[in-house]
């Protein structure tokens, strides 16, 4: 059984249908990416998985358990962590407190301490900035904090929403290297990206979303070589 299975998912924003019945599967241990333009419905998909927006119809199964109608905090409890679009840093709190909130539901002190060390290994910058107000971090550091904070929940599935958005190319390289490291350590990742080039290089499997519908799906390598994708998303004529 796949870790995440979405079947015919439909959502609405007011009267407008945002997702017209999409289906996708995330296999255990993989990085699956969802690429597409602005407004295609990528973030909406992640929000529906996390329970942030109501689902009109369709099903979302995580490890065989239905997620539709379940409250967001219960979904976190089941093992889904979501680093949201725009990073969602608590700028009124310190970096340390932000990380703490990531492990809000956990009680195992030793495990939390271990995971903190792991986050510091992945992102040495975070350790340096621990006492600092999170609002004073640079964009890249905030993204690192958002991912680190999501990891503090020790998720089985990590949802990443546009981790490269607004970052300098070098920082983007770093972030994607770390995403691969996180995956190599055993965390399954569903990655939403506009930066199709980086996403297809990193992921095992990819879906292309266009105005609320999945128009293509294949192994990331194959998609990166297909003419349509090269033309539309990789800027190759």
């Amino acid at each position: 059984m796949a870790l995440l299975e979405i079947r015919d998912l439909q959502t609405h924003y007011g009267a407008i249908e945002a997702l017209h019945g999409i289906s996708l599967t995330v296999e255990r241990g993989q990085i699956v990416t969802l690429i597409g333009c602005n407004g295609a419905g990528k973030s909406t998909t992640l929000r529906a998985i996390s329970g942030l927006i109501p689902v009109t119809s369709g099903s979302i199964l995580f490890d065989g358990k239905p997620l539709v109608g379940v409250a967001p905090h219960e979904i976190v409890k089941l093992g889904v962590a979501h680093a949201p679009e725009g990073r969602g840093i608590f700028a009124n709190l310190t970096v340390d407190e932000n990380l703490d909130l990531g492990s809000y539901l956990r009680r195992d002190r030793d495990g939390i301490a271990r995971d903190r060390e792991r986050v510091f290994e992945l992102f040495p910058r975070i350790r340096e900035r621990l006492r600092q107000n999170a609002g004073t971090l640079s964009g890249g550091e905030q993204q690192m904090l958002a991912i680190g904070r999501a990891l503090m929940a020790r998720p089985r599935l990590l949802l990443l929403d546009e981790p490269s958005l607004g970052l300098a190319p070098q920082v983007v390289q770093t972030i994607f290297r770390i995403i691969r490291e996180i995956n190599a350590a055993g965390t399954t990742i569903l990655l939403v990206e506009q930066n199709a080039h980086m996403a297809l290089q990193t992921a095992h499997f990819a879906y292309v979303l266009e105005v609320g519908e999945i128009v293509m799906q294949d192994e990331a390598k194959k998609l990166a070589e297909s003419d349509e994708v090269r033309k539309a998303y990789l800027g190759v004529a």
Partner: peptide, 24 residues
């Protein structure tokens, strides 16, 4: 306290607070 931290988080951003596992 943990609860107070949750209050601060909800006050800053309800949506993201729920993604931390906080019962808003």
């Amino acid at each position: 306290t943990r609860l107070g931290r949750a209050m601060q988080a909800v006050s800053y951003n309800t949506r993201v607070a729920s993604l931390m596992g906080i019962d808003v």
